[in-house]
Design a protein around this nucleic acid. Structure first.
Length: 879
RNA sequence: GGGAGCUUAGCUCAGCUGGUUCAGAGCAUCUGCCUUACAAGCAGAGGGUCACUGGUUCGAACCCAGUAGUUCCCACCA
């Protein structure tokens, strides 16, 4: 069978993915094994795969595959999030295209459209995850708005309300005038923008000439002003006590109030107070009992209460009113200023602080165990630096606004009668029973359910419990077996949105953490360091990348540069490196596969030692890889694996044992070496599998026929032995000798085909001849011999223990050789000197550990010997 | 405004409890090779005042202080 020179992922990837699915390797059910569980951070149901998902899910897949091979009952639960505001926005936009206005639809009709949309387009992203090789248990796929999960959300709401943790009230909230809903503090993104600071004169009541000048960035809110506030200690304004000022245009007289909230230094030290449209002003209003005039409507346009500009957008009005005030002569000056403005995370609209009736979850109590158990290490954040951020947030957390003025989501289970009584319960019937107690004339028809839905995060915070039906069936087999899950892999951006809240819910509803380790990935950026985003169009399509480089190639590319918590400056060349690596592995297979076996041939000394060496080397590196995994140092685990395969296995081991080529034909290989090589290759494939699932499975089956149950995906992870590394150390010297000889060849421009001869003069200890045959082979030598004297007419080099001579046919450039040796000599003398200084330092000898001193002494002796050898060679060259 | 982190080769990063001339890896670069597994490759080489300044120490990339630059998080200064 002809095997192509280049690995083609297109042929293998879909085939193996289908095979794994068919044989249910991703499936997990509780059994006697120890579970290893990951719940996916559910992507938005509207989402399409982007590079962030790619990274995040690759890491999860690597972890889950490794644990699966290590014998755990690995369970990776997939699913999607209903993403209320994002999805609703999308559906609204789509309807608009069809000429349908949301406001013309009933709630039911709208939801019908939304569900239709979800069924049609939702979950594309899960299909895309398959392309990357994600080994999720697809039978467990959940959706945050499916019946069971919604029910859990409702039950939790009712429960927390019963516990007094949820309350309803009119508060200043972050209002998204585009999404037409309240959002939580976490959904507001503050950005610095260039603004103008307007200085506006307000007339003092009863005095025709006196004015007070206030400074504001939001002149459009002037119409809603109900006071002017100054600092009680401010000498400039003390005389205004008890006075009133006239609001321009509307000519309303409002009081001058005094509060030490004011910063005397800012602007004029006088603040206009608009309780309806600013959180600080609102607080002042409450304190000083001020009137609230709501001049901006929900859609961000001026309301009738404003009297002017009614129906016009607040930003248009800002410009207009500035002009109008200017004409009235009430603008003193306008300054440029930088200030921070809040934007909606979802719609990017400028957030308006707005008074409205909302539901809130009290955070002070429930957050306590969640903080404690991160601080005490019960839950680990990786990297650790996030613990600080987490702590700070948890200690300063505000109550969580959980109601949203949307339809797509779980409708709040609160019921009202016409008299303002409220019942929180599951059904209208229950509500009727409850409300009737307070209102005996109540009819069922008069009961209305709260129009609002709950924040999406109010359902996703239950995810690790609800995906195992932990609410429906708290003693169920699944929840008892899989919970707490092991690792959570997610982006630091949603540490508060989601991670912190899952921890809260975990302790509240299971009395236990939801997961043990939280691995926070970096943010994928482009080469210029910009965050990848749809609007910038700087994000490559992961699916296209997969087509180009193969899933294995892209996985490797992503992981090569992704230390935990650090941003990942993505560059397509990384994937190229990944693809090249696939090809390297492929060709290693081609080489081995092409060998003929001679069952009768005796294993050569050099093959025997090669096998011994690689066995030891593999074991050493496996220990390292296991250790790196345990520390979640994925990037380094991959790099270590990469070098083990490429350098140690391919560049060294395979070259060492590769049969000679005679008469246009490769000689056969002895069976012992061949068998060992296959074992090594299989072990390497296993270690590679979590990173590169497809190519490893493909080669695994090409090596030999195997039954389904023996797929590499479920093969046993190699076990590292404690073992000695003596041979590995010895071999490092051999490698150095070989590199030196190759270097001479290169420098002297000697063709690799030309055979050389090498002599070794041992200066220290005895000659270790074990590896000589390997040197002969890898350097293409006629012989490697031992001598007692210098060899003339040869290029030489000196290692710690011995001198090496490579006689050349051509004349030796004595001057150049001298220079080279002189340089070497100088270096070694410098080294010697540094060691001598160290050893003659009394304090060093007195303070340093004895082993260290012994080591220094050995270095001294080695250096001296080496210097002597070089010097002798220099003398020799003079002839 | 508060807090946290980062700064090591052209790029992306390692560097554990201070101790091997401790300065390392991969990629990129340069040189020579189309050598029957692989040019998506092989062999070799060159790259760094460890941000800066001072301190502690026998000894500092590592510990301490300050400075500069940078990133992130939090926060209601109009």
């Amino acid at each position: 069978m002809e095997i192509p020179k280049n690995y083609d992922p297109k042929i293998t990837e879909d085939k193996w993915y289908a095979y794994w699915l068919e044989h249910k390797f991703f499936k997990s059910t509780p059994d006697e094994r120890e579970p290893y569980t990951i719940v996916i951070p559910p992507p938005n149901v509207t989402g399409v795969l982007h590079m962030g998902h790619m990274l995040n899910n690759t890491i999860q897949d690597v972890l889950i595959r490794m644990k699966r091979m290590q014998g755990f009952n690995a369970c990776w639960v997939p699913g999607t999030d209903h993403a209320s505001i994002a999805t609703e926005a999308k559906v609204v936009a789509l309807l608009k295209e069809k000429g349908i206005k949301k406001t013309d639809l009933s709630r039911e009709d709208f939801l019908k459209h939304a569900w239709e949309w979800k069924e049609k387009y939702g979950g594309i992203i899960l299909k895309q995850l398959e392309k990357l090789g994600a080994s999720c248990d697809w039978d467990r796929t959940r959706f945050t708005m499916e019946d069971d999960l919604s029910e859990a959300v409702i039950d939790v709401f009712i429960d927390l309300h019963a516990k007094g943790q949820i309350y309803r009230g009119v508060r200043m909230v972050n209002w998204d005038p585009q999404g037409l809903t309240a959002v939580s503090d976490e959904e507001v993104i503050h950005k610095e923008v260039n603004s103008k600071l307007y200085y506006v004169k307000y007339k003092i009541e009863g005095d025709n000439d006196e004015y007070i000048t206030i400074a504001t960035t939001r002149p459009e809110t002037i119409l809603g002003d109900t006071a002017v506030c100054v600092h009680p200690e401010d000498e400039r304004y003390k005389h205004l006590k008890g006075k009133r000022v006239i609001i321009p245009m509307v000519n309303r007289a409002v009081p001058v109030i005094f509060d030490d909230y004011i910063d005397i230094e800012f602007g004029t030290g006088a603040l206009k107070v608009t309780p309806a449209h600013d959180i600080n002003d609102y607080n002042l209003g409450v304190k000083h009992n001020l009137e609230v005039i709501d001049t901006i409507a929900a859609d961000g346009k001026m309301s009738p209460a404003a009297q002017f500009y009614v129906g016009e957008d607040r930003f248009a009005v800002r410009k207009k009113i500035a002009k109008d005030l200017e004409e009235l002569g009430q603008i003193v000056k306008i300054e440029d200023i930088k200030n921070k403005v809040g934007y909606s995370e979802r719609t990017d609209a400028v957030i308006e602080p707005r008074l409205s009736m909302q539901w809130f979850l009290k955070m002070d109590q429930v957050s306590k165990p969640a903080l404690e158990n991160v601080l005490n290490g019960e839950i680990k954040l990786i990297p650790e630096k996030f613990v600080n951020t987490y702590k700070h947030w948890m200690e300063n957390v505000h109550d969580w606004c959980i109601s949203r003025q949307l339809w797509w989501g779980q409708q709040i289970p609160a019921w009202y009668d016409s008299k303002g009584n409220t019942a929180v319960c599951k059904t209208k019937e229950e509500a009727f029973e409850k409300l009737r107690v307070k209102n005996s004339e109540l009819k069922v028809e008069d009961i209305k359910q709260d129009e609002d839905v709950l924040d999406t995060w109010f359902s996703s915070w239950l995810w690790p419990i609800s995906v195992f039906d932990g609410f429906k069936n708290p003693k169920g087999k699944d929840i008892e077996y899989y919970y707490p899950t092991n690792d959570l892999v997610t982006a630091p951006e949603i540490l508060f949105f989601w991670v912190a809240r899952m921890i809260i819910a975990g302790y509240e509803y299971r009395g236990a953490k939801p997961f043990t380790n939280v691995y926070l990935t970096g943010i994928v950026r482009d080469k210029q360091g910009r965050k990848m985003s749809k609007s910038l169009g700087n994000s490559p399509d992961p699916i296209e990348l997969i087509e180009k480089y193969g899933a294995d190639g892209v996985r490797v590319g992503m992981l090569l540069c992704s230390p935990a918590g650090n941003d990942l400056p993505f560059d397509e060349s990384m994937c190229e490196q990944g693809r090249n690596f696939s090809n390297k592995i492929w060709n290693a297979f081609r080489l081995i596969n092409g060998w003929e076996i001679d069952a009768n041939a005796k294993q050569s000394e050099s093959n025997k030692i090669s096998v011994e060496w690689f066995d030891a080397k593999f074991n050493e590196q496996l220990n390292l890889i296991d250790d790196l995994y345990s520390k979640y140092r994925m990037s380094e685990a991959l790099m270590t694996t990469y070098k083990l395969v490429w350098d140690d296995f391919c560049a060294w081991y395979l070259e060492m044992i590769k049969p000679e080529f005679v008469d246009g034909k490769s000689l056969p290989i002895d069976k012992a070496t061949y068998d060992a090589t296959i074992v090594f290759f299989e072990r390497l494939l296993k270690v590679l599998h979590p990173f590169m699932p497809f190519i490893t499975e493909e080669i695994w089956h090409l090596i030999k026929e195997r039954e389904a149950k023996d797929c590499i995906i479920v093969a046993e992870w190699p076990k590292a032995k404690a073992g000695s590394t003596g041979i590995v150390k010895d071999f490092e010297i051999v490698m150095e000798v070989i590199t030196n000889i190759r270097n001479i060849r290169k420098q002297k421009n000697i063709s690799p085909k030309e055979k050389l001869q090498v002599f070794e003069k041992v200066n220290q200890g005895e000659a270790i001849k074990t590896y000589d045959s390997i040197i002969v082979k890898l350097c293409n030598l006629t012989s490697f011999e031992y001598v007692n004297q210098k060899v003339d007419g040869a290029i030489s080099f000196v290692l710690k223990h011995a001198e090496f001579y490579v006689p050349l046919l051509q004349n030796i450039d004595v001057a150049a050789e001298k220079e080279r040796l002189a340089k070497d000599l100088e270096y070694n003398k410098g080294f010697l000197k540094s060691v001598e200084i160290k050893l003659s330092n009394e304090k060093f000898v007195a303070n340093a550990k004895p082993e260290l001193i012994a080591n220094e002494k050995k270095k001294l002796a080695d250096a001296e010997a080496k210097i002597k050898a070089i010097e002798e060679q220099l003398i020799g060259l003079k002839n």
